[in-house]
Write a protein that binds this DNA or RNA. Structure first.
Lengths: 154, 154
DNA sequence: TTTTATGCAAAGTATTTGCACGGGA
DNA sequence: TCCCGTGCAAATACTTTGCATAAAA
C-alpha cells in the first residue's frame, strides 16, 4: 500500500480568481482578499478565521461576504469543508482528485494522502455485497498531532 | 480483508438506563422516552427527530431535555454523533469497540463494519512515517443507498 | 450603462443557559 | 426531605436573507 503525503497546494489563488471569472463572477477586492487568505493557508479556517485574516488585507470586509465567497469557492470545488470530531465549520484548499485527509487536531494543519485505491475499492465491494448497499462515497481521515505541534508541546 | 456488516444493536435501552443510574443520574420519564426512541432506532436521529418521536411516549417532553439527555448518553459512550456530507447533528446508538460506519444517504440507516484492522494500522504507520504526525484517531465511513431505499427508489 | 457584489441590519436556525417548580431516591 | 431534573423563556452562536449603495465589466 502506497501513501505519499502531500501538503496542501498553497499559492494557487491566482488560478482560483481566473476560475471565478470564467464562471461569470466578478473579481472584487473583497474576493481577492478571501481567496488569498484561504489559498495561502495550510490550516483549516473557519469563516470567522477567514474574516479576521482577510480584514488585514481589506479592512472594509464584511463577514457576510466571507460566507458568500466560501460558498462559491466550494461550488467550484476549489475549497472543501472538513469534518472533525471537534466541529465541521472549517475549510481548506481542495486537492484535485480524490484524496484522504490527515489533520492535526492542535493547529488544524491539513495534509493529503492517497491510500491504496484498490484496497478501498475491495473493501467497498465487500461491504456492498454483505450489506446490499450501493456505495457511492467514502471518507477516510486520520487525526493526530503534526510534527511542529509535537515539538512545541512541552 | 474481512468486513462483516452488523446492524445497530437495537433494544439495549434497559442497559442504558442501568448505566445512567450507575453514574448517579436519575431515571425519569422524559429520559426513559428519549432512551427508548434512540435505542430502538437503526436510523440517524437529530435532536428534533428524537423530540418528535419521544413526545409520542411522553407528551410533556421539552426539546431542551432531549439535548441534555443526548449529551449524557454521548458522554457515557452509549450513542455517537455521526458526520455526513449533509450535516453532523445526528446520533445513533454506539457499537462497542471501534467500528466503521456504513450510512444510507436516503433514509439515514446505519450499519457498522469492521475493516481489516491490520490494513488501517499499516496505513496509519506509513502515513505517520511520511508525515511525522502522531496519529491518534481515524474515521472510515462509507456512504450509499441501502437495499430498502434502492427497492423503493422507483 | 448594466448588472453583480457589498455591507449593514434583520431574520432564521440550532443550541445553551437561568430559573422556579416538580418529582426521584 | 433533599436535591437533581424539567420545561419555559431568554440568551447565545452561527448562518442566511433583504435591501440600498458601490463597483466591475
Amino acid at each position: 500500500m502506497t501513501s505519499p503525503v502531500k501538503p496542501t497546494a498553497v499559492g494557487n489563488g491566482q488560478a482560483w480568481l481566473v476560475n471565478l471569472q470564467a464562471h461569470g463572477y466578478r473579481l472584487t477586492a473583497p474576493r481577492r482578499a478571501v481567496v488569498e487568505v484561504i489559498s495561502l493557508s495550510q490550516h483549516l479556517l473557519t469563516p470567522l478565521d477567514i474574516f479576521e485574516l482577510a480584514r488585514a488585507r481589506y479592512p472594509r470586509l464584511g463577514l457576510v461576504t466571507v460566507y458568500r465567497t466560501v460558498e462559491k469557492l466550494e461550488e467550484l470545488g476549489l475549497i472543501q469543508r472538513v469534518h472533525q470530531p471537534s466541529g465541521c465549520q472549517a475549510f481548506i484548499a481542495a486537492f484535485s482528485g480524490h484524496q484522504h485527509l490527515l489533520i492535526c487536531q492542535r493547529c488544524g494543519r491539513v495534509e493529503f494522502f492517497s491510500g491504496d485505491q484498490a484496497t478501498i475499492n475491495t473493501l467497498a465491494a465487500e461491504v456492498s455485497s454483505h450489506s446490499g448497499y450501493a456505495i457511492e462515497e467514502h471518507w477516510l481521515q486520520l487525526f493526530g498531532t503534526c510534527l511542529i505541534c509535537r515539538e512545541t508541546e512541552r
